[in-house]
């Protein structure tokens, strides 16, 4: 599905705006017990885009979200930005590979594995910058919580896809080859 018509461009813009809103709202969640725990609502939209439109569109939304949320927070090209970028890209890469090449997994477990790799990507940047492997201390806690939130977000996106709202819109605007 390579065609970019007016519908697709505006729909992508709406989805990107939604990810920015969700990502920005999430950044105000304070940390308790373990630093940096977030529900990852943005992943719902990334997964829906990945399934309904494809990996390239998901990549655009994901990159746009990372840049624009950092811009809103005033932390562009600072540590938070690089951690977010690394986490998002690693997570998207793993989810794309699992979605296209591992047919045995359902969306909720793809989402959970993606969430785990999101934590891993962030920790890796922290390890490189802090020059200490000790930051891996937080990884088991983050992985455990990532699995739970990842499953929830994956189930939410499965629910959205199963309503076929986007499918109908795509059909209406000539984005489905019949």
């Amino acid at each position: 599905m390579k065609k970019w018509n007016v519908f697709k461009i505006s729909f992508m813009a709406i989805l990107l705006a939604m990810t920015i809103g969700l990502g920005y709202a999430e950044s105000f969640i304070p940390s308790f017990w373990i630093p940096g725990i977030k529900p990852g609502f943005v992943n719902i939209i990334i997964l829906v885009v990945l399934v309904e439109f494809g990996w390239f569109e998901a990549l655009i939304i994901d990159l746009g979200k990372v840049f624009l949320v950092s811009l809103l927070r005033g932390s562009l090209f600072q540590m938070g930005f690089f951690m977010s970028l690394s986490g998002s890209m690693l997570s998207l890469l793993v989810m794309v590979l699992l979605y296209y090449f591992v047919k045995k997994l359902h969306l909720f477990s793809i989402s959970a594995v993606g969430a785990v790799f999101h934590s891993l990507g962030q920790i890796l940047v922290a390890v490189i910058y802090m020059e200490t492997a000790g930051v891996f201390y937080y990884l088991p806690f983050l992985v455990l919580i990532s699995i739970c939130t990842g499953i929830l977000m994956g189930l939410a996106s499965q629910k959205i896809i199963s309503t076929q709202v986007i499918e109908k819109l795509k059909r209406k605007h000539g984005l489905v080859n019949e």
Binding site: L105, F108, A112, P140, F141, V143, L144, I147, I151
Partner: peptide, 18 residues
């Protein structure tokens, strides 16, 4: 089946470390 296997492996591994 495969979802359970993958999630259980990662979950049990991280849970035991935690």
């Amino acid at each position: 089946l495969w979802d359970f296997i993958v999630l259980a492996l990662v979950g049990v591994a991280s849970l035991s470390v935690v």
